[in-house]
Computed example of a mutant assay.
Amino acid sequence: MEQTRYQVRFDWAAAGAHAIGADADVIVWVDALPESGSELDLSTLPQGPAVVFTDLSSAHAVAQWVIDLQVKLAKRILIAVVAAGSTRNGQLRVTTEDLLAAGAVIDQLAALGLDATSPEAAAAEAAYRGLARATSHLLTAVTTTATTAPEPEQLKVNTALTAADVRVVRA
């Protein structure tokens, strides 16, 4: 297990989920701009943790959902924030949009008091914080959106969403 000293961890794709999430209480699967036909395959993830899905818009709601879970379980929980990335020629392609969305989740978790982050998570959070004002523009300009423009609601954190709006893939 990697990043085991930290409450909030970060890595990429299914392999990263196994590296940081097998002992986690929850995996936050981040896919800022899901490609059609690229549904999350739960069989590729560690079997124990709850799994929630987020994009940039629901980062705040997911962070609140995680806090609510910690309160419900009455213990310090472990969170694996996993950026989906994409593939190119069968290999992982690290995507700017997923890095920024994952950083937004980590930033929202920190704002709610969960700041025992791994260096990897801190770097993703710093990327988001440093580029937060430009995130909407960046998400419309990345390679992924060359053929399909994202919807306006995908371009920023929506603080009106609540934990009840979170897409729980596995409880």
Rank of each mutant, 00 (worst) to 15 (best):
130 G>W: 07
30 V>T: 04
100 L>K: 01
45 L>F: 03
102 A>F: 04
99 L>Q: 07
132 A>Q: 13
163 A>H: 11
77 I>H: 05
65 W>Y: 15
93 R>T: 09
105 V>M: 02
44 T>D: 12
138 L>E: 05
51 V>H: 02
131 L>Y: 06
120 E>L: 04
59 A>Q: 02
42 L>R: 08
162 T>A: 08
55 D>Y: 05
79 I>E: 04
121 A>C: 06
48 G>K: 10
162 T>M: 07
53 F>S: 09
147 T>E: 12
139 L>P: 00
146 A>S: 15
157 V>I: 14
63 A>V: 06
32 A>F: 03
70 Q>H: 05
162 T>Q: 08
52 V>R: 04
87 T>G: 07
145 T>N: 05
67 I>S: 02
83 A>Y: 05
148 T>N: 10
36 S>K: 12
99 L>C: 08
123 A>S: 15
85 G>V: 08
158 N>S: 11
102 A>E: 02
153 E>H: 14
45 L>A: 07
151 E>W: 14
80 A>N: 02
145 T>E: 03
105 V>W: 00
110 A>T: 10
155 L>R: 04
97 E>W: 00
42 L>Q: 12
96 T>R: 01
102 A>K: 03
77 I>C: 04
163 A>D: 04
31 D>C: 11
62 V>S: 01
50 A>H: 10
88 R>Y: 11
62 V>K: 00
80 A>K: 01
150 P>Q: 03
129 R>A: 10
117 T>P: 03
34 P>C: 10
47 Q>N: 15
89 N>W: 11
160 A>G: 08
76 R>A: 10
92 L>A: 07
134 A>M: 09
130 G>E: 11
35 E>G: 15
121 A>S: 06
52 V>I: 15
102 A>N: 06
100 L>V: 07
79 I>F: 09
151 E>S: 13
88 R>V: 12
143 T>L: 14
76 R>F: 06
53 F>R: 11
47 Q>D: 15
44 T>L: 15
89 N>C: 09
42 L>M: 08
160 A>R: 10
43 S>Y: 05
115 D>V: 08
116 A>H: 13
121 A>I: 02
33 L>A: 01
88 R>T: 08
44 T>A: 13
162 T>F: 04
72 K>P: 04
163 A>S: 14
92 L>Q: 09
80 A>C: 03
64 Q>C: 05
151 E>I: 01
48 G>S: 07
74 A>C: 10
71 V>P: 02
143 T>G: 08
89 N>E: 11
110 A>R: 07
137 H>N: 15
60 H>I: 03
48 G>A: 09
48 G>V: 06
100 L>W: 00
153 E>Q: 15
140 T>W: 03
109 L>S: 02
106 I>W: 00
44 T>M: 13
33 L>P: 01
68 D>T: 07
108 Q>V: 01
135 T>A: 14
35 E>I: 12
95 T>W: 05
131 L>V: 06
158 N>M: 07
152 P>F: 05
82 V>K: 06
109 L>M: 09
86 S>P: 05
87 T>F: 10
127 A>G: 08
146 A>Q: 12
137 H>G: 15
84 A>E: 07
100 L>P: 00
145 T>S: 14
69 L>S: 11
51 V>E: 02
46 P>V: 11
65 W>N: 00
71 V>K: 13
135 T>K: 04
123 A>R: 13
155 L>P: 00
161 L>R: 12
148 T>L: 10
148 T>S: 10
76 R>W: 08
126 A>I: 07
57 S>M: 01
157 V>L: 08
55 D>W: 04
88 R>N: 05
104 A>G: 06
